[in-house]
């Protein structure tokens, strides 16, 4: 009983320290827990895997640096898969997120270099444009016009080889949004999936799964990557372990600590109530 009384009056900073230690240890000494792939991630993987080489994919970076760990790792592994499948990659932010397109450049550029993919030929960053859903609608009309014929750095889109094979966003085989906000996914479903049957993949944070899984079951999404777990499962499927798989042990350790403390807290609560009664 004394143990639980002490635990109950424990300074919260000890909890914080314990969590920090528990999260850090696996980075130095990984546990190597096996990764189980769920249906959501497998569908996303199969959708990219079945896209014909040379077809176009729009990767929308609709997240802020706060969820870089989750959405950034998802985007990185999906982009790698697209390049591996020789798909043409258009990068932008359908949710008009200026930080997203900046992050996109930092994430995609090194992967493209590593895989010998040329900017303007195999991929392009369309840059930041305002409008959100309206921007998506104008790209359905004409991608180059909607982007004022300028890419991320102000170069002419119309002179790039990658833009010679596509005019409208509806010609994209797959549209994926990596998001902590969700708006672009709604636009993709409303304006592209519903009207033209484009395939939509959602890269969302762990906390958004419960809200967005309904669209997977209805067939409006062709796959979901949920949080860091989804990214780790995708890395596992692609056979390219990276930051997400590395982070899984930390996530496991943190979740186990949550479990232990919730159980301990409840045992203490039960003993206290028994003593009182």
């Amino acid at each position: 009983m004394k143990f639980f009384e002490k635990l109950d009056s424990l300074d919260v900073r000890w909890l914080y320290l314990l969590l920090a230690i528990v999260v850090t240890i696996p980075f130095f000494k990984p546990f190597g827990l096996p990764i189980q792939v769920d249906n959501m991630t497998r569908q996303a993987f199969d959708t990219i895997e079945s896209a014909p080489p040379g077809s176009y994919v729009f990767l929308s970076f609709d997240f802020l640096p706060s969820t870089l760990t989750e959405n950034g790792t998802q985007a990185a592994i999906v982009a790698r898969h697209c390049f591996q499948r020789n798909l043409k990659v258009l990068v932008g932010s359908a949710e008009s997120n200026n930080e997203g397109v900046q992050l996109a450049q930092s994430i995609i550029e090194p992967i493209a270099k590593e895989m010998n993919k040329e900017y303007g030929v195999d991929w392009v960053n369309l840059g930041f444009k305002v409008g959100g859903g309206l921007y998506v609608r104008s790209m359905i009309e004409d991608i180059i016009k909607a982007n004022a014929d300028q890419d991320f750095t102000g170069k002419k889109l119309s002179e790039m080889p990658i833009m010679q094979g596509i005019k409208s966003l509806k010609e994209c085989e797959i549209l994926a949004s990596f998001t902590s906000l969700g708006g672009a996914l709604n636009d993709f479903v409303a304006y592209l999936y519903s009207e033209y049957g484009n395939k939509v993949i959602a890269g969302i944070t762990g906390g958004m799964i419960t809200q967005y899984i309904v669209y997977l079951q209805s067939g409006q999404y062709k796959g979901i990557l949920g949080g860091l777990t989804g990214a780790a499962q995708y890395e596992f499927l692609l056979g390219k372990p990276g930051k997400a798989i590395q982070g899984m042990d930390s996530q496991s350790a943190a979740h186990a600590l949550f479990f232990v403390f919730v159980v301990l807290g409840n045992i203490g609560f039960y003993l206290k109530s028994k003593k009182r009664s």
Binding site: L19, P65, F258
Partner: peptide, 24 residues
């Protein structure tokens, strides 16, 4: 980037503390 990530990761610490004290 680091400031945004740091702010978001603070959630984990508050969630642990809240789960321990309030999840009864």
């Amino acid at each position: 980037s680091p400031l945004g990530s740091a702010m978001f990761s603070l959630l984990a610490f508050y969630m642990l503390s809240a789960a321990y004290r309030a999840f009864r």
